[in-house]
Amino acid sequence: MAAGSRDGWLDRVMTAVALRRWGRAAEAAPETDLPRLRRQRAAARRLKTRLDRLLQVAEARLALPLIGSQAFPRPQDADWAWRPDPWCGPLPVQGLCPARSPARLAEGTVLFHDCPRADIVLRQIRNTRDADLAACGLKLEVFRFEGSYLSLAVDLPEAAAQGLKRRHLLRVEALVEMERPVEILARLNIRHGPNTEQIVRELPLQGDRARVEFDLAYARLNEKRVDHLWLDLIFEGPEMSQVILRDLTFCRRPRAEL
Protein backbone atom coordinates (compact mmCIF):
# COMPACT_ATOMS: atom_id res chain seq x y z
CA MET A 1 0.00 0.00 0.00
CA ALA A 2 1.39 3.42 -0.98
CA ALA A 3 2.15 6.03 1.68
CA GLY A 4 -0.49 8.34 0.22
CA SER A 5 -3.10 5.58 0.53
CA ARG A 6 -2.13 4.88 4.17
CA ASP A 7 -2.34 8.59 5.00
CA GLY A 8 -5.76 8.84 3.40
CA TRP A 9 -7.01 5.74 5.26
CA LEU A 10 -5.62 7.01 8.58
CA ASP A 11 -7.22 10.44 8.04
CA ARG A 12 -10.60 8.82 7.41
CA VAL A 13 -10.30 6.68 10.55
CA MET A 14 -9.31 9.65 12.72
CA THR A 15 -12.15 11.74 11.28
CA ALA A 16 -14.66 8.98 12.00
CA VAL A 17 -13.37 8.63 15.56
CA ALA A 18 -13.62 12.40 16.13
CA LEU A 19 -17.15 12.50 14.71
CA ARG A 20 -18.28 9.67 17.00
CA ARG A 21 -16.62 11.35 20.01
CA TRP A 22 -18.31 14.71 19.40
CA GLY A 23 -21.57 12.99 18.56
CA ARG A 24 -21.56 11.19 21.92
CA ALA A 25 -20.63 14.45 23.70
CA ALA A 26 -23.55 16.25 22.05
CA GLU A 27 -26.01 13.50 23.03
CA ALA A 28 -24.75 13.45 26.62
CA ALA A 29 -24.60 17.25 27.02
CA PRO A 30 -27.93 17.53 28.91
CA GLU A 31 -26.56 15.25 31.68
CA THR A 32 -22.83 16.17 31.59
CA ASP A 33 -21.43 17.70 34.79
CA LEU A 34 -20.80 21.43 34.44
CA PRO A 35 -16.97 21.51 34.79
CA ARG A 36 -16.62 18.92 32.01
CA LEU A 37 -19.27 20.62 29.88
CA ARG A 38 -17.36 23.90 30.23
CA ARG A 39 -14.15 22.24 28.95
CA GLN A 40 -16.04 20.66 26.05
CA ARG A 41 -17.55 24.00 25.14
CA ALA A 42 -14.10 25.66 25.03
CA ALA A 43 -12.70 22.83 22.88
CA ALA A 44 -15.75 22.90 20.57
CA ARG A 45 -15.36 26.65 20.06
CA ARG A 46 -11.67 26.25 19.12
CA LEU A 47 -12.58 23.45 16.72
CA LYS A 48 -15.46 25.46 15.23
CA THR A 49 -13.15 28.41 14.51
CA ARG A 50 -10.82 26.18 12.48
CA LEU A 51 -13.67 24.41 10.72
CA ASP A 52 -15.31 27.71 9.77
CA ARG A 53 -12.00 28.93 8.33
CA LEU A 54 -11.62 25.72 6.30
CA LEU A 55 -15.20 25.93 5.04
CA GLN A 56 -14.82 29.57 4.02
CA VAL A 57 -11.68 28.90 1.97
CA ALA A 58 -13.02 25.63 0.53
CA GLU A 59 -16.35 27.16 -0.54
CA ALA A 60 -14.58 30.08 -2.21
CA ARG A 61 -12.05 27.91 -4.06
CA LEU A 62 -14.49 25.21 -5.11
CA ALA A 63 -16.95 27.81 -6.42
CA LEU A 64 -14.38 29.28 -8.83
CA PRO A 65 -13.89 27.97 -12.38
CA LEU A 66 -11.19 25.29 -12.53
CA ILE A 67 -7.67 26.46 -13.39
CA GLY A 68 -6.63 25.14 -16.79
CA SER A 69 -10.14 24.25 -17.88
CA GLN A 70 -10.77 23.86 -21.61
CA ALA A 71 -14.45 23.09 -21.01
CA PHE A 72 -16.93 25.14 -23.02
CA PRO A 73 -19.88 24.42 -25.34
CA ARG A 74 -18.88 23.45 -28.86
CA PRO A 75 -20.59 21.88 -31.90
CA GLN A 76 -20.65 18.09 -31.90
CA ASP A 77 -18.87 18.00 -35.26
CA ALA A 78 -16.04 20.33 -34.19
CA ASP A 79 -12.63 18.90 -35.14
CA TRP A 80 -10.65 21.44 -33.10
CA ALA A 81 -11.45 23.67 -30.10
CA TRP A 82 -9.30 25.85 -27.85
CA ARG A 83 -9.26 28.46 -25.09
CA PRO A 84 -6.10 30.67 -25.00
CA ASP A 85 -3.79 30.56 -21.96
CA PRO A 86 -4.71 33.99 -20.49
CA TRP A 87 -8.25 32.68 -19.91
CA CYS A 88 -7.10 29.32 -18.50
CA GLY A 89 -4.92 30.20 -15.53
CA PRO A 90 -2.63 32.71 -13.81
CA LEU A 91 0.09 34.30 -15.94
CA PRO A 92 3.65 35.10 -14.76
CA VAL A 93 2.92 38.76 -15.55
CA GLN A 94 -0.65 39.58 -14.57
CA GLY A 95 -0.77 43.27 -15.43
CA LEU A 96 0.76 46.02 -17.58
CA CYS A 97 0.40 49.65 -16.50
CA PRO A 98 0.93 51.55 -18.67
CA ALA A 99 0.48 49.09 -21.53
CA ARG A 100 2.96 50.45 -24.08
CA SER A 101 2.74 49.01 -27.59
CA PRO A 102 3.53 46.22 -28.18
CA ALA A 103 2.31 45.19 -24.73
CA ARG A 104 2.95 41.45 -24.37
CA LEU A 105 0.91 40.04 -21.50
CA ALA A 106 1.63 36.42 -22.44
CA GLU A 107 3.23 34.44 -25.23
CA GLY A 108 0.90 34.90 -28.18
CA THR A 109 -1.25 37.61 -26.58
CA VAL A 110 -0.17 41.16 -27.41
CA LEU A 111 -1.86 44.57 -27.27
CA PHE A 112 -1.03 46.96 -30.12
CA HIS A 113 -1.82 50.68 -30.41
CA ASP A 114 -0.37 53.94 -31.70
CA CYS A 115 -1.29 56.14 -28.75
CA PRO A 116 1.70 58.36 -27.84
CA ARG A 117 0.48 58.70 -24.27
CA ALA A 118 -0.31 55.18 -23.10
CA ASP A 119 -3.07 55.78 -20.56
CA ILE A 120 -3.97 52.12 -20.93
CA VAL A 121 -4.04 49.27 -18.42
CA LEU A 122 -4.22 45.60 -19.36
CA ARG A 123 -4.38 42.98 -16.64
CA GLN A 124 -5.56 39.48 -15.91
CA ILE A 125 -8.35 38.95 -13.38
CA ARG A 126 -9.81 35.86 -11.69
CA ASN A 127 -13.34 35.00 -12.74
CA THR A 128 -15.66 34.38 -9.78
CA ARG A 129 -19.20 34.43 -11.19
CA ASP A 130 -21.47 31.39 -11.36
CA ALA A 131 -21.81 31.85 -15.13
CA ASP A 132 -18.05 31.79 -15.76
CA LEU A 133 -16.47 28.70 -17.33
CA ALA A 134 -13.05 30.28 -17.88
CA ALA A 135 -10.77 30.51 -14.85
CA CYS A 136 -9.54 34.00 -15.72
CA GLY A 137 -10.35 37.02 -17.86
CA LEU A 138 -8.61 40.07 -19.28
CA LYS A 139 -9.52 43.60 -18.20
CA LEU A 140 -8.69 46.49 -20.53
CA GLU A 141 -8.98 50.03 -19.17
CA VAL A 142 -8.49 52.98 -21.50
CA PHE A 143 -8.39 56.57 -20.24
CA ARG A 144 -7.15 59.32 -22.52
CA PHE A 145 -6.63 57.91 -26.03
CA GLU A 146 -5.09 59.91 -28.86
CA GLY A 147 -4.24 57.06 -31.21
CA SER A 148 -5.97 55.72 -34.33
CA TYR A 149 -6.12 52.02 -33.42
CA LEU A 150 -6.16 49.65 -30.45
CA SER A 151 -6.14 45.90 -30.95
CA LEU A 152 -5.52 42.71 -29.01
CA ALA A 153 -3.77 40.03 -31.06
CA VAL A 154 -4.15 36.38 -30.09
CA ASP A 155 -2.03 33.75 -31.83
CA LEU A 156 -3.74 30.42 -32.52
CA PRO A 157 -1.74 27.21 -31.98
CA GLU A 158 -0.35 25.08 -34.80
CA ALA A 159 -3.29 22.68 -34.45
CA ALA A 160 -5.62 25.38 -35.80
CA ALA A 161 -3.72 25.44 -39.11
CA GLN A 162 -3.30 21.68 -39.46
CA GLY A 163 -5.78 20.30 -41.97
CA LEU A 164 -7.48 23.68 -42.42
CA LYS A 165 -9.64 23.70 -45.56
CA ARG A 166 -11.89 26.18 -47.30
CA ARG A 167 -14.82 23.99 -46.28
CA HIS A 168 -14.21 24.88 -42.62
CA LEU A 169 -16.11 27.33 -40.42
CA LEU A 170 -14.08 28.93 -37.64
CA ARG A 171 -16.15 30.12 -34.68
CA VAL A 172 -15.03 32.73 -32.16
CA GLU A 173 -17.04 33.24 -28.96
CA ALA A 174 -16.47 35.83 -26.26
CA LEU A 175 -17.99 36.80 -22.95
CA VAL A 176 -17.72 40.58 -22.70
CA GLU A 177 -18.53 43.22 -20.09
CA MET A 178 -18.43 46.93 -20.90
CA GLU A 179 -18.84 50.17 -18.98
CA ARG A 180 -20.22 51.78 -22.12
CA PRO A 181 -20.84 50.46 -25.66
CA VAL A 182 -17.62 49.94 -27.61
CA GLU A 183 -17.63 48.46 -31.10
CA ILE A 184 -15.33 45.45 -31.41
CA LEU A 185 -14.20 44.06 -34.76
CA ALA A 186 -12.78 40.56 -35.11
CA ARG A 187 -10.18 40.15 -37.85
CA LEU A 188 -9.04 36.62 -38.68
CA ASN A 189 -5.60 36.43 -40.27
CA ILE A 190 -4.54 33.29 -42.16
CA ARG A 191 -0.95 33.09 -43.38
CA HIS A 192 -0.42 30.78 -46.33
CA GLY A 193 3.03 30.92 -47.84
CA PRO A 194 4.07 34.54 -48.49
CA ASN A 195 0.46 35.78 -48.40
CA THR A 196 -1.96 36.54 -45.56
CA GLU A 197 -5.72 36.37 -46.01
CA GLN A 198 -7.76 38.65 -43.75
CA ILE A 199 -11.46 38.35 -42.94
CA VAL A 200 -13.13 41.04 -40.82
CA ARG A 201 -16.42 40.68 -38.98
CA GLU A 202 -18.10 42.80 -36.35
CA LEU A 203 -18.33 41.02 -33.01
CA PRO A 204 -22.08 41.19 -32.36
CA LEU A 205 -23.02 41.47 -28.69
CA GLN A 206 -26.21 39.86 -27.38
CA GLY A 207 -26.18 40.80 -23.73
CA ASP A 208 -22.64 39.98 -22.65
CA ARG A 209 -22.15 37.16 -25.17
CA ALA A 210 -20.76 37.48 -28.67
CA ARG A 211 -20.27 34.93 -31.42
CA VAL A 212 -18.95 35.24 -34.96
CA GLU A 213 -18.23 32.57 -37.58
CA PHE A 214 -15.69 32.93 -40.36
CA ASP A 215 -16.70 30.97 -43.46
CA LEU A 216 -13.45 30.08 -45.22
CA ALA A 217 -15.29 29.24 -48.47
CA TYR A 218 -14.92 32.94 -49.34
CA ALA A 219 -11.23 33.11 -48.44
CA ARG A 220 -8.59 33.12 -51.13
CA LEU A 221 -6.05 30.80 -49.58
CA ASN A 222 -3.74 28.01 -50.59
CA GLU A 223 -4.85 25.14 -48.35
CA LYS A 224 -1.53 23.31 -48.76
CA ARG A 225 0.50 26.25 -47.45
CA VAL A 226 -1.52 27.39 -44.41
CA ASP A 227 0.92 27.61 -41.50
CA HIS A 228 -0.33 30.23 -39.01
CA LEU A 229 -3.53 31.90 -37.81
CA TRP A 230 -4.15 34.76 -35.44
CA LEU A 231 -7.09 36.90 -34.38
CA ASP A 232 -7.11 40.66 -33.89
CA LEU A 233 -9.80 42.13 -31.66
CA ILE A 234 -10.01 45.78 -32.72
CA PHE A 235 -11.62 48.28 -30.34
CA GLU A 236 -13.26 51.29 -31.99
CA GLY A 237 -13.43 54.56 -30.01
CA PRO A 238 -12.02 53.07 -26.79
CA GLU A 239 -11.36 56.33 -24.91
CA MET A 240 -12.63 56.41 -21.31
CA SER A 241 -13.85 52.83 -21.43
CA GLN A 242 -13.43 49.55 -19.59
CA VAL A 243 -13.80 46.21 -21.34
CA ILE A 244 -13.58 42.86 -19.57
CA LEU A 245 -13.13 39.77 -21.74
CA ARG A 246 -14.38 37.10 -19.34
CA ASP A 247 -13.81 34.34 -21.88
CA LEU A 248 -12.51 33.82 -25.41
CA THR A 249 -12.83 30.48 -27.21
CA PHE A 250 -12.31 29.09 -30.70
CA CYS A 251 -13.64 26.04 -32.48
CA ARG A 252 -13.48 24.71 -36.01
CA ARG A 253 -15.97 22.53 -37.84
CA PRO A 254 -16.53 21.41 -41.42
CA ARG A 255 -19.41 22.99 -43.29
CA ALA A 256 -22.28 20.66 -44.05
CA GLU A 257 -22.10 19.25 -47.55
CA LEU A 258 -24.77 20.57 -49.92
Rank of each mutant, 00 (worst) to 15 (best):
A2M: 08
A2H: 04
W9T: 13
W9I: 10
L10P: 06
D11M: 09
V13Y: 11
W22L: 14
E27N: 15
A28K: 06
T32C: 08
L34G: 09
R39W: 08
R50E: 15
D52P: 00
R61M: 13
R61P: 13
L66N: 08
F72E: 02
R74H: 13
A78V: 00
D85R: 08
D85Y: 09
W87M: 03
G89D: 07
P92T: 03
V93Q: 11
Q94S: 06
P102K: 00
R104E: 14
L105A: 00
E107Q: 13
D114T: 09
R117M: 05
I120P: 05
V121G: 02
N127D: 02
N127Q: 01
A135T: 00
C136Q: 09
K139T: 06
K139Q: 11
R144Q: 12
V154E: 14
A161N: 01
G163E: 10
R171E: 11
V172A: 07
E179L: 11
R180P: 02
P181W: 00
R191T: 06
H192F: 02
G193V: 02
G193P: 01
G193L: 04
Q198Y: 09
Q206N: 09
V212E: 05
D227L: 04
L229Q: 04
D232A: 13
S241Y: 06
L245G: 04
L245K: 00
P254C: 00
